[in-house]
Amino acid sequence: MAEAPGTASGREAQLARTGLRPGWTTGACATAATTAAYTALLGAEFPDPVTITLPKGQRPAFALAEERLVAGREAMAAVVKDAGDDPDVTHGALVRSTVRPLPPGSGVVFRAGPGVGTVTRPGLPLPVGEPAINPVPRQLMRAHVAEVAARFGGSGDVEVEISVDHGAELARSTWNPRLGILGGLSILGTTGIVVPYSCSAWIESIRSGVDVARAAGRTHVAGCTGSTSEKVAVAVYGLPEDALLDMGDFAGAVLKYLRRHPVDRLTIAGGFAKLSKLAAGHLDLHSARSQVDKGHLAELARQGGADEALATAVAQANTGLETVQLCAARGVPLGDLVAAAARDEALAVLRGAPVAVDVICIDRAGTIVGRAEPRGPRRG
């Protein structure tokens, strides 16, 4: 991939100042491969590098890693995905497009090749049975097919089969199996550009998880900060897999999306330290972006009956979990107080949406150290 984005947005300009290198989405890679393959199918040379136009006008160029032509029948081109400096599971994956002619009037038909998943559950932006090639990459590929057809005298009626080498294995590290996308990866991207550490893919997966749960008729979902809290939520409530949201550090993403797309009940489950951040009003729970506020914990301890000596010890504790242990030894239910404060903060973010919220705080071993029972929506 030889060329950097040509038109930088404010966000991309800020990224440039950080020194982090952007990359390309699987959708951009699939579009580049499709453009090269269809060009060759119509009798021209494989363009290498192949240049495409992204939704915001950038014109990156992609080197071809592989190409194959069976004249008149099919052409295949492949590019290596470069995710830049983002820790993307698909970085380095080989994205292939095989293009075959179809009868006039067929349009562009998409197929899932090896390593690309198929949608098996409702709630996603694609019908059940469709290859997991999202709407924006489809639109981008259709536009480039039309452009190549106009340039080289084709009809634009083609089958486009997208595949990703080792995609089925890579997909096990994504949300796809839980979302009902089976057999491989999704072909994603709205701008074509991967912004390092933007976390946009994770947040989009949270939203898709809510959509799938709602489509399955789930009325109770759990936003969990990790696998241990997820196991606790399942043990306590017996929730099915499609009701579990891998919230990670993005409490705000869960709450803001449920505000617009509510379910009857949300359980928030996570480690005590992370949920103490939510209790203090933080919606991003990552350690680099928010810290445990021991002064706030000391104030909660006072509200729970702690004397000044205990409150001072809480404020000076080394870790969040130590504050729980100090209070438990003196009969002050700090875990429950944090859970209740986190619940109330969540209800404030929901802004009266019809979602009841309860909270479970755990320690590293998965033991419940605090709990707040469900409370209905806050009005006003």
Rank of each mutant, 00 (worst) to 15 (best):
K231D: 04
D284A: 06
L337Y: 00
P196I: 02
A313I: 12
H166G: 00
G105T: 12
G271I: 02
D336H: 02
P47W: 11
G335D: 09
D48N: 14
G376S: 01
Y237D: 15
A33Y: 05
A365C: 04
E45Q: 04
S97E: 03
A16M: 14
A132Q: 09
G115C: 15
C199G: 02
A288S: 02
A311E: 12
P87C: 05
Q316P: 11
L266I: 04
E345K: 13
V128F: 09
E12P: 05
A353L: 13
P5H: 05
A4V: 09
G72P: 08
V234R: 12
V128H: 10
A143C: 04
A253G: 11
S287D: 12
A288Q: 04
V158P: 15
S97D: 00
P5T: 01
G376F: 01
V234Q: 13
R17A: 15
E130R: 10
Y38C: 13
G295D: 14
L310C: 08
A216V: 11
V116S: 06
K256F: 15
A328T: 13
G117N: 05
G252M: 06
H286E: 03
P131T: 03
G107L: 03
L124F: 02
E3V: 15
P125T: 05
I133G: 02
E66P: 04
Q303K: 09
V136E: 13
L126M: 12
P177H: 05
A243D: 08
S200D: 03
Q303C: 06
T319Q: 04
E204H: 01
E169T: 14
V89L: 14
A222D: 09
P104G: 12
H144I: 00
A253K: 11
G223M: 08
S287C: 10
V158F: 13
R178C: 09
L102I: 04
M141F: 00
L285G: 00
P127L: 01
G115D: 10
R68G: 01
S287I: 13
V109I: 10
G43R: 02
V164L: 11
S208Q: 09
L321P: 03
Q316G: 08
L179K: 06
G27N: 11
A328G: 07
F250T: 03
L337A: 05
S163D: 01
Q58I: 10
L334Y: 06
A365H: 12
E308P: 06
V349I: 08
V160P: 12
V212M: 07
R59S: 08
R21P: 11
A37K: 06
A168W: 07
L126T: 03
L54R: 05
T228W: 02
Q303T: 14
S200G: 05
L124A: 01
C327I: 00
A311S: 14
R111F: 06
E130P: 06
H166Y: 04
A243C: 01
H261Y: 13
S106W: 10
A251I: 11
D284W: 10
A306N: 01
G252L: 14
M76Y: 11
D85N: 07
S198N: 00
T120W: 12
G295T: 07
V128W: 11
T98N: 01
V234C: 07
